[in-house]
């Protein structure tokens, strides 16, 4: 990654945070809690992929439609997050795979 990419990445991240800040309070609260959870779960590509900006796109649509955030995504926010990252590998998966993959070859 070159220095230009780092600067670009920072700019994009700041722009992203500005959009989050512009959301109504209930959306902002839910977004921030979701982000915390997603950082822990750690789907591969979380920081440079389309997932987080996509959530803000989706939330902006919900705001425009005059909906409350839980009306939009349901009250089980964790289930919504799990749906977002379903089928995408996490860093933990990658780690487990390295353990499982190694031992599998010795097992045969």
């Amino acid at each position: 990654m070159g220095i230009q990419d780092v600067i670009e990445g920072k700019k994009q991240w700041r722009a992203h945070l500005a959009r989050v800040k512009a959301l109504p309070p209930d959306y902002r609260i839910v977004y921030k809690e979701m982000q915390k959870y997603l950082f822990r779960v750690g789907p591969v590509g979380l920081l440079d992929g389309p997932l987080l900006p996509g959530i803000v796109d989706f939330f902006e649509e919900g705001v425009a439609a005059g909906k409350g955030v839980l009306e939009l995504i349901g009250s089980d926010v964790a289930a919504f997050c799990d749906g977002l990252v379903k089928d995408s590998p996490t860093y933990a998966d990658a780690y487990q795979e390295s353990l499982g993959g190694k031992s599998r070859t010795t097992g045969k």
Binding site: Y37, R40, L70, S75, V77, A78
Partner: peptide, 21 residues
């Protein structure tokens, strides 16, 4: 599992902060 705890924490935090709002 950790993940279950994180799930619960997420939903609890959301509920608490939204109700305060």
């Amino acid at each position: 599992t950790h993940r279950d705890r994180w799930r619960e924490q997420l939903n609890r935090n959301v509920a608490r902060k939204l109700s305060r709002l």
